[in-house]
Design a protein around this nucleic acid. Structure first.
Lengths: 228, 228
DNA sequence: CCTACCGATCGGTAGG
DNA sequence: CCTACCGATCGGTAGG
């Protein structure tokens, strides 16, 4: 995700010269042919989208290749296997989620020490990651956890645990104050289930906004009373 | 699901005579060879288990055949396609879920008109269906909805809507009384997400019982106050 | 990154 | 319900 969103821009003049020289192969989507990792980013994004829509097993490496304008064998120049692509979808996704979560928390911690407001921020941020267009890694993680090898699972679990650990003290605080009427560990499992399932039904084009949804979910789980 | 749980019992003497006569093929798990639909039941059960564990696309019809002691082509004598098996897993599962839900409601409606107790019953019953050993259809529905054809989806949705519709008036009652602090339609989506995800983490052999879990979830979603 | 290819596996069928 | 089989597709590789 290093130079992520700049991926399919027009290339510099140097790259265009390269294209002019070796005219083999059929036209690409862009003139970009630099060997600098952009294609890796594109492949991960396309794989994430396809894995989400069709599932890991039902997605062929040919589908992924076609989605980025490559021939069938070429993804294996960038990734040693289909499974390595799946792993990278999840790893990059979770790592960015951790970064965004830390960012969101930092922004509020200065102004609001209230546990309920903190949970509201965590929930809003989670929805933002989960429901933003083009972000497919959480559904892929939910659906394709079993498609990882044991070693891959262990690595992803490490990042996931880090992401989820942040929620525990917040939920514990709300439990102590009586606003959360459920054991915090169990509450976290139930809440993540509730939030993540929204990827299946939330429609950004109609109904509530993301902020409305986050507020409603917060209201459902924790009482407003007894604010710190 | 007509003669469901009687599926792998010992056959009557008539069936045994049949077995003695045509001695071809290798030994089955049981002597049962009656052509009366038992094998259909076994196939659906095995398919459900495999579809849940490995996913629809990653499960071969050979896997399913092997699980019930058949040869690779034989499932197609009972079902016209792999997709028809998936459909039957979901249809039978949802139909039994509806039956059990109606049963559970009937049992309480005489004694308890309280909305909160009603929701507690719905939640407990849902956990019982979701988490009982050998019941795989809800996870399969969650994971493999996309693997259904459009026509199949429509049929399953009909039964699913029927199952979920029961929850609406109960949630509306709790919303009116102020115990549910979230719009009922949205609450239902969030609650189902929370409940269903438990299929991934609930372990019957340790931790809370099914009843404890149901009570805790109910507490999380609806306040105890203002009964009636 | 493409071409050309391989062995394996898959859903499904005919014919009994 | 088995045997024997088919065409299609798949993940992955060698060699450039």
């Amino acid at each position: 995700m290093d130079r992520a969103s700049a991926s399919s821009e027009t290339p510099g003049p140097a790259a265009q010269a390269v294209v002019a020289k070796r005219g083999r192969g059929r036209p690409r989507k862009t003139l970009d042919e630099r060997d600098d990792g952009n294609r890796r980013v594109e492949l991960v994004r396309a794989a994430g989208s396809l894995f989400r829509r069709k599932g890991f097993a039902a997605t062929s490496t040919r589908d992924i290749a076609a989605a980025v304008g490559m021939r069938s064998g070429s993804p294996f120049y960038h990734f040693k296997s289909k499974g390595a692509l799946l792993f990278e979808v999840m790893r990059q996704g979770m790592e960015e989620a951790c970064r965004k979560q830390a960012e969101a928390l930092q922004k509020t911690e200065e102004t609001t020490p209230d546990s309920r407001a903190l949970l509201a921020v965590l929930i809003h941020n989670h929805f933002a990651i989960l429901l933003s267009r083009g972000s497919d890694f959480i559904p892929v993680m939910l659906y394709e956890w079993r498609s990882l090898s044991a070693a891959q699972r262990k690595q992803i679990a490490l990042i996931k645990d880090q992401y989820e650990a942040v929620w525990v003290p917040v939920l514990e605080g709300l439990h102590r104050s009586g606003q959360l009427r459920c054991e915090p560990k169990l509450a976290r499992l139930l809440i993540f289930g509730a939030l993540n399932w929204s990827a299946q039904w939330f429609d950004a084009r109609r109904g509530a906004s993301l902020a409305d949804l986050a507020a409603a979910a917060t209201d459902l789980f924790v009482a407003k009373g007894k604010a710190q």
